[in-house]
Design a protein around this nucleic acid. Structure first.
Lengths: 213, 213
DNA sequence: GATCTGATGTCAGTTACTGTCATCACAGTA
DNA sequence: TACTGTGATGACAGTAACTGACATCAGATC
């Protein structure tokens, strides 16, 4: 493989995922990844900030998609609904690369250092979503909370999707997860120090049973 | 300082925070921390898994407090309320060490690697909260969503508290943040593919204005 | 064909982190 | 008092992630 073979970055990504699957993340050295891609260790670090980042190259595009969708939603759409619709679109995209997502997530789930990286990417998504909401006129702290709630909904739906047998539909799972969140948070809004207790938890399980297929 | 001075772990924690504040996290070597604590680098790594972990020694106690509070809450209390009450107790605890929290958070906010560690600690808290809820009989996915929602509420409240001038009361901020989440998520629970749009976002800002002091 | 530019290779260096074994303080015990 | 076991620490060598500096090469432009 000559020095100027095309798509060095893509070759590094593929080699890394292969090796992480074959022998695990920690048991793989950057030198090995580079060698399989026909490059040197130094070149790896020119394309990716560190050994973990090679698994998260697509995060930028996802963030772009989400923020564009939120900013572009009609004014009449409520903030959380705008976020939910954007997440559904992202979910539909993920669904097109199901096997890749599975393999990648298996690697991440097997390594805490990779989970840390995933979490900060999700936090960055939440931050970008909050910014997009503010551009829609949503004020703080509602913007931040709506964004965080959206990411929580996505996380739960994604977990369900990735661990399922393959039948589940991501946009639908996201919608169901959102319904569940609404059921779970529905309750008396306190007006001061003393809280409004006494609500049965039957409420959430009832809502869940009606939210399904 | 002799070889067997007491509280080696505590000395390492203090030396690390001092140095991270003085010259920054990345500009501090583990050897320097150990030297200031009167120990060696090797001993540092016997007490802490890595250079970041020294800032998160208290996470275990916090998790203990939260899960105990959730499991011990009366049966009549709704899941999200049980979580909120536990978070208020944790917030009250944090408030007793405000200056320490401030310094520590400033260090974390200045370094992405530390933010990653903080996020995985929060994720662990969410996971522990979800487990505690399941022990109360809450089913999935409500347990996971309620826990994630609780952590989101806490994150927003904590940000507000740490960036404020010093007057704010953590339990109250948590309660207000929860109210805001309830306002933001309140809405039509969809029963299928098409979503119930058309809700004005005025709702959330109105709720916010009434939730304050 | 000369030159410029950007991607890559080479090499030396720092530092986080680990494995291994020696050493020390202290507690118990005869 | 001497002996012994135990746990914490020190000393030292080694691996691998990551960085800085400079050389080199392929292709585009003139």
């Amino acid at each position: 493989m000559g020095r100027w073979e095309p798509n060095a970055r893509g070759r590094l990504e593929q080699a890394a995922l292969e090796l992480y699957v074959e022998r695990g993340f920690e048991q793989t050295t950057v030198a090995e990844i580079a060698e399989r891609a026909g490059l040197t260790e130094r070149t790896f670090f020119r394309h990716f900030a560190d050994k973990r980042e090679v698994l998260f190259a697509g995060a930028g595009a996802l963030q772009e998609l989400l923020t564009t969708a939120v900013v572009g939603a009609p004014d009449s759409v409520a903030p959380l609904e705008a976020v939910a619709t954007a997440l559904e679109a992202a979910g539909a995209l993920l669904q097109e690369r199901r096997e890749y997502s599975r393999r990648r997530q298996a690697v991440i789930n097997a390594n805490p250092a990779l989970q840390e990286r995933e979490l900060i990417k999700l936090a960055a998504l939440a931050s970008a979503l909050a910014d997009a909401l503010r551009r829609r006129g949503v004020t703080d702290p509602a913007a931040g909370l709506t964004a965080e709630a959206g990411i929580a909904v996505f996380k739960i739906a994604f977990e369900h999707w990735i661990s399922g047998t393959g039948e589940a539909d991501m946009p639908q799972l996201i919608r169901e997860s959102l319904d569940e969140l609404r059921a779970v948070t529905a309750g008396h809004v306190s007006t001061g120090g003393d809280a409004g207790y006494g609500q049965s938890q039957t409420r959430s399980s009832q809502a869940r049973s009606t939210a399904g297929t």
